[in-house]
Amino acid sequence: MEVARVVNVTRYFKTGDVETQALRGVSLSIQSGEFLSLVGPSGSGKTTLLQLLGCLDRPTSGQVFINGKDVTKLNRNQRADMRRGTIGFIFQFFALIPTLTAFENVELPLLLSNHNAAERRARVQALLESVQLGERAHHRPDQMSGGEQQRVAIARALATQPALVLADEPTANLDTANGHQVMEIMSRLNQDTGVTFVFATHDPRVFNFARRIVTLRDGLIVEDRLVENPAPEPVETSA
């Protein structure tokens, strides 16, 4: 089943008189259950593409379909609804709300959609355990390491059981060991729950986990290949 489809998308930014062509005509189809890595040099348009897939931004031209629905036609509130129900985000910075505990951060998306308290509690606890943070539920972000915070962010991204999780350089601010753990967790969650992951990176240690690698350069897709046997390097050797 197709989760997302991008058709002939361009995205130009105008800053003063300068126009940056971040995406210059990109088409891509993403199937349910994929573990896809967007790679490419800095400025190639990875973040821009993720933002379009995530209904955070709208293309200059072209169409973006999520679950078969053309999201380029949605208004602000409809896009917010789409994000809430179908998309999970993981960012490069550990995007937690500093005044909330790990539990409350994960609970937040559930509060926005009508889940009752018991449901929320059970789901949050299960998610925190799946990212190996069951014990840390009541710690605030400043009481956790970067790796732990990023795992909380993963749990939060999965809270509403989204069809698509988008991660923009999720390991860029982590050391090798923590980065590896985060990737392992994402990979396992992908295999266990079948949730689709799309992550942008230029770190080989990260994209070695991927089962499909899409390479961008100067706003265009220059390569799209499947990886038969993803071969993440063991932590010991790369550390």
């Binding site: 955070l56 917010a80 994000r83 809430r84 129900g85 999970g88």
Partner: peptide, 10 residues
């Protein structure tokens, strides 16, 4: 931005 990303409305 984060709150908006996880679907909080204006």
């Amino acid at each position: 931005g984060i709150l908006a990303a996880i679907g909080m409305k204006g």
